[in-house]
Amino acid sequence: MRALALAALLASCAAPPTHVQTTLYLGRAIPAGGVVDDRAVEVFVADTVARHLPAGFTLIAGTGGWRDTGTGRTITEPTLVLIVLHPSGERGPVEAVARAWAERFGQQSVLRVELPVSDLRF
C-alpha cells in the first residue's frame, strides 16, 4: 500500500514538459476562389513566419481533406504543415502566425495540434 501511495505521489510530481510541438495545418484553398500560390506562400513565410518564429520551424507541403458539414462531401486541398518546437506556455508567436494566415487568405480556421515534447536535443 505504501509503495502504491509513493508511486502515485511521484507521478503527480512529474515536471511538466519544458517544450511543446505545435503543428499548424494551413489550407491553401481560398474560400472566395483560387489557391494560395507559391509566391504568396514565400512572401508569407518571409514576412510573417520567419519574423514570429526566428528560432526555427519546418514547413511541409501536403494535401489535406475535411468533411464539408453543409454537403457531407470530403473536400481536399493543398495544405502546408508548419511544425514548431517552442517553450511550453509561449503560444503567442504561433497563434500570431495562425491568425495572420486566416486573415490574409480568408480561411475560416487553422487546425492546431499541440503535443508535449519529452525529449528535446540539439
Rank of each mutant, 00 (worst) to 15 (best):
S88C: 11
A102D: 03
V43C: 01
G34H: 09
L53C: 09
V35Y: 12
E95C: 00
A100C: 04
T23K: 13
D37M: 02
W66Q: 03
P93W: 08
W101E: 02
E95N: 04
R51L: 14
T79M: 15
L80F: 07
T69Y: 09
P54W: 00
V36N: 02
E103N: 06
V49K: 03
V35F: 12
I30N: 01
A55H: 14
G34S: 05
T74E: 10
E77I: 01
L26H: 06
V97R: 08
A50H: 05
G92Q: 09
E95T: 02
E95A: 14
R28K: 15
A100L: 01
G92Y: 02
V45E: 13
H19K: 06
E42K: 11
E90N: 10
G70Y: 02
A61F: 08
T63W: 11
L85I: 15
L82H: 00
T74P: 06
G56L: 06
A55S: 15
I60V: 15
V35N: 10
V41H: 04
A40G: 04
D47G: 04
E42A: 15
R28S: 11
P31R: 09
G65Y: 13
L53P: 07
A96N: 07
I60T: 15
R91D: 15
R51H: 14
T71W: 06
E77G: 02
A61R: 14
T58D: 12
G33L: 11
P93M: 02
F105T: 00
